[in-house]
Design a protein around this nucleic acid. Structure first.
Lengths: 127, 127
DNA sequence: CTCATTGCAAAGATTTTGCATCACC
DNA sequence: GGTGATGCAAAATCTTTGCAATGAG
């Protein structure tokens, strides 16, 4: 890991994410942080999101919709994606480490983990 | 579903995928099909892959590496991704429909399915 | 003073699309 | 012959990167 010098922009991005449970995209982070730093560039946002993820301060999510999302909760947990509105919410459900053992018995190699998300329709869209 | 007119190019793409278990990317399909249709365009490959997926003849995979991959096996099944060489192989392991029920009890909405893949190091790379 | 960070813009990478032409039914 | 498909190139999307200027330690 490289030496890191503090920056107001990165602090702001980190602080913004800490308070969220909606897993913002880089674009959403950009729009939000822009209110405090009107001249920040999208490149800087992407760079800092990558640095924070690299340092294990946040987690990068890919729920198969093109844009990556970012989560301040770095604990292993599952997500629920609404197929109608695209909202991504946390699932407070136990991590299934045992499925890695199961998968390992079928794989032509050593299984060390898995990636998963659940999809369906959220309550709000079901109305 | 729209009316479809047959084309040699699409037939070739379909036939190429049928014989594979390595989940080629669009680029790989393009390179392969180009041997029979040297003037085929990448756009046509993308277009046909999307049409075939739309018709349920093939399945589009996203294993979080940027490029999508395509699978002639449209049955629900899991995949194993080697983190070293990037190879994607099938896992002949039962589909865990019960986890959808479990997730549903935790979700703020109706869970209808899940997406998952396992990762690790394949035998070839472990040597 | 050094070098990580920024803003800007250009470039990358992947996929989609507009359009005139082609070919299937 | 009508319209779906093709090839080509341009564009759209999302993300990364080169570079000179700026700022933190």
């Amino acid at each position: 890991m490289v030496k890191r010098k503090r920056s107001k922009q990165r602090d702001c991005i980190r602080a913004y994410l800490e308070g969220r449970k909606d897993h913002p995209t880089a674009e959403m982070v950009y729009e939000a942080v822009r209110e405090e730093f009107p001249s920040i560039s999208l490149g800087t946002v992407y760079r800092n999101l990558s640095l924070l993820a690299e340092d294990g301060e946040i987690m990068r999510l890919d729920v198969g919709e093109g844009q990556d999302r970012f989560d301040p909760n770095v604990e292993k947990h599952y997500h629920f994606v609404c197929q109608k509105c695209g909202a991504v919410s946390d699932l407070d459900m136990p991590w299934m480490k045992h499925v890695d053992v199961l998968a390992d018995s079928f794989a032509a190699g050593k299984v060390t983990g898995h990636m998963a998300y659940f999809y369906g329709i959220c309550d709000k869209c079901a109305e």
